[in-house]
Structure formats: C-alpha cells, structure tokens
C-alpha cells in the first residue's frame, strides 16, 4: 500500500511541477536573448483564463491549450512592442504586464468563476498505464506533461546544439556585436519573447485545465514569479530548470500532504508559506556567489537595445 501512495504522490508532483517547467523554460529562452520579462505571472493568468473559456465552450483540450499559448504570446507581443519597439524599461513594462494580466484575466473570467470543467484526459499509452505502480507515473499522464519534457529537451538542444541557438545566445551576450555582423537583433528577441509568452500561456492553461480544473481569480498564486526565480536558481541552464521545477513541485505536494495528513499541528497558512519561503532561501543560496551569477547570466539581460548604443 505504501508503494501505491508513492506512485500517486509521484503523479501529483509531476502535475505540480509541469506549469513551473513550462513558464521557466519559456522565460529562459527570452532571457537568453537578453530580454527580462517580469510579466510571467500576468501571461500565465491570461493563458489560464482563455484556455479555460475555450476548453469549456468547445470541449476540445487541444483548442484550449492552443488558446492558452496564443494568449500568452499575445501578451508577450504587447511586452515586445513596448520594450523592443518603443525601447521602454523592461522591468517596469514586465510589472505592467503582470498588473494588466491580473485585471484582464479577472474581467474575462468573471462569469466562469467556480464553473467546473472535466480535466484533460490522462493518456494511456497502449494500455501501459495499467501496469501497477510505474504505469500511471510513466504512461498515464496527460499530454501536457509529456509535452513539457519534450519541450525542455528541445530547448536544450536548440540553445546548445544548433546554429540558431548560438545566434540567440550571442544576441543575449552582446547585441551590438551581433547587430554589426548582421543578425536581426530585434527580430530574434521578438521570437524569443513570443516563445516565452506561449510557454507561460501553456503553463497557465495547465493550471486551469488540469491541475485544479477550474478558473479562480489570481489562481496562478505567484507561480509566475517562482518560475522567474527558478531561472536564476538554475543559473540559466535548462537541465537545472527541470530539476528546480520538480524540486518546487515536490515541495508543494509535500506541504499539501502534511496538511492532509492532519497529524501535524501546524496551521495551514504556515504550510502554504513554504514554497514562497523556499524560493527566497534558494535565491539567497544561489545569488550569494555574485561572480557565478555574473558569469552565467546573459550579459545584456534587461538592457534596452538601440543600434546607436
């Protein structure tokens, strides 16, 4: 029976980690190109609400996920117009995007609050999910969980094994050098930002379609910010983002189980603080070595690019 619990815990950890993995990997690509988008929370919320609405109205999971991705990318496009086109401050614009996303998602979703939706179907790869214990973990997840792994591998391959990935990283390290060799800095950054938005949108979609299957105002509850912290925690490396996302997913599930077990006399609010406090602890541990951050962070991150310098 202990193994059964272990298996179900593993399934729920994967569910809690998937939205973080999507959002953080998307943000990684944007940051690698030198753009710091602090609007992840807002993009996730917007993606979550639109995916939920489309899912409820059409009954199609694929359409719902696509809508979430498109909404995230649309929000990111807004960010791109301001920061890449009109050279606005990236920190301020990212905050604006989050504030806007909070308001917009509340407006769009207000008549859907509390409506239940059937969760995304769990795939059953050739009946293999019926294998006891390992089956549900390895073969019985919904499509987005598998997509998140494929996407992570794809991003890692793209960034470090392809020429286009090298160009994207060079834009993030030194946009002026990249510009002078003739690379379209703005277009590359635009693509990276849009990808980041789409991934945040899918992360949000996962929350409202699968994790909680419903829409509630502010339901992302800081996961967008935790995703931003994960990128720093991972010192901008894909494999470590995967690790970090699962660490946080595990932590979330651990504190939920402690609440559920009822054996520990700690008020629920204090247990709910754990992921936020853990984010701070992790940030401190990783940032205390300033040199390591400086060597790993894309050199031009957060800086506005204008050809004249």
């Amino acid at each position: 029976m202990d193994m059964l619990i272990l298996s179900s815990v593993a399934v729920s950890i994967m569910a809690a980690s998937t939205p973080l993995l999507f959002a953080a990997m998307g943000e990684l690509v944007a940051e690698k190109s030198g753009v710091l988008n602090l609007g992840v929370e807002g993009m996730m919320l917007a993606g979550a609400v639109l995916a939920f609405i489309v899912g409820l109205e059409t009954g199609s999971g694929i359409l719902a996920i696509a809508a979430g991705a498109a909404m995230g990318a649309l929000m990111a496009a807004l960010f791109a117009v301001l920061t890449l086109g009109l050279l606005a401050n990236q920190v301020a614009t990212g905050l604006a995007l989050t504030l806007f996303g909070i308001g917009l998602s509340a407006l769009l979703g207000q008549s859907y609050v509390g409506t239940p939706i059937p969760p995304l179907p769990k795939l059953s790869v050739g009946g293999l999910s019926d294998i006891p214990l390992l089956g549900p973990v390895v073969f019985g997840q919904d499509a987005l969980v598998y997509l998140s792994f494929a996407m992570t591998a794809g991003v890692a391959y793209f960034l470090y094994r392809t020429r286009a990935g090298l160009v994207l990283r060079s834009v993030g390290e030194n946009p002026h050098a990249a510009h002078s060799i003739g690379f379209p800095v703005i277009a590359i950054r635009l693509a990276a930002v849009l990808f980041g938005g789409a991934m945040a949108g899918i992360g949000g979609a996962y929350m409202s379609l699968s994790y909680t299957p419903m829409w509630a105002e502010g339901m992302i509850a800081g996961r967008g910010w935790i995703a931003l912290a994960l990128v720093v925690f991972a010192t901008w490396r894909p494999a470590r983002i995967l690790l970090g996302a699962y660490l946080f997913g595990g932590l979330t599930i651990a504190q939920l189980h402690m609440q559920g077990s009822g054996q520990i006399e700690i008020p629920a609010q204090f247990l709910n603080m754990v992921p936020y406090l853990a984010t701070i602890v992790v940030l401190v541990l990783i940032s205390r070595d300033a040199t390591r951050i400086r060597l790993n962070a894309p050199a031009s991150i957060g800086k506005v690019f204008h050809p004249d310098g």
């Binding site: 602090l38 920190v91 509850a221 800081g222 910010w225 935790i226 931003l228 912290a229 720093v232 008020p267 609010q269 204090f270 709910n272 603080m273 936020y276 406090l277 984010t279 701070i280 940030l283 401190v284 940032s287 205390r288 300033a290 951050i293």
Partner: peptide, 30 residues
C-alpha cells in the same frame, strides 16, 4: 538579503507579499 547575499529584491519582496497575506489570514482566522 540584497546587500549581504546579492539576492534579487524584486523576487524576495514579492514572495514576502504572499507570506504576509498568509500570516494575516492565520491571525484573523486563529
């Protein structure tokens, strides 16, 4: 945390906002 450990104040101050909300919720329900 910023001056001693170089930790980003944006993320730390924001995370503490969630913690503060939970602390308030604990006090008024407890």
């Amino acid at each position: 945390l910023r001056t001693r450990f170089n930790a980003n104040e944006i993320l730390v101050s924001l995370m503490l906002t969630y913690v503060a909300g939970l602390l308030l919720s604990y006090l008024v329900t407890g």
